[in-house]
């Protein structure tokens, strides 16, 4: 459900950046979404199609790059993907600590049309 309010923010950010760059239309919006954020791409696109009506972003493609979360081992410092129900490092058995990888949630770039 909260994809609605989040999508409003996405349209707003894209439009602000489009306007300041002299766009007449936004063709594509690229998002980076960490899988820990729990956002569902299909749901964002669905709200986007409704919320972007009448904005520069109407009809744009929302292109999402997902990032799988990684932990960092507290012993050997290697980064790894965790198994379900475990935080253990597959290399050395050390305890994996949370990192920022997998929590991303930002608008990366936009493709715009200008009338130049």
């Amino acid at each position: 459900m909260h994809e609605y309010s989040i999508t409003q923010q996405i349209v707003k950010i894209a439009e602000e950046n489009a306007i300041s760059n002299g766009a007449i239309k936004i063709e594509r919006i690229s998002l980076v979404v960490g899988e820990l954020s729990g956002f569902i791409g299909e749901s964002i696109q669905m709200y986007f199609d409704v919320l972007s009506k009448g904005t520069l972003a109407e009809g744009a493609i929302v292109d999402i790059t997902y990032v799988k979360p990684q932990l960092k081992c507290s012993k050997c410092n290697s980064f790894f993907y965790r198994k379900r129900f475990s935080f253990e490092c597959p290399q050395c058995g050390g305890m994996g600590l949370p990192t920022e990888i997998g929590k991303e949630f930002y608008v990366k770039d936009i493709d715009i049309l200008t009338d130049k």
Binding site: Q9, A18, F105, Y106, V107, D109, T114, K116
Partner: peptide, 17 residues
């Protein structure tokens, strides 16, 4: 008309934050 890529890199939570 010209197609152009604009770098944004803006956190979507930033307004709430």
């Amino acid at each position: 008309m010209e197609l152009q890529r604009v770098e944004v890199v803006k956190n979507i939570y930033s307004e709430n934050e």
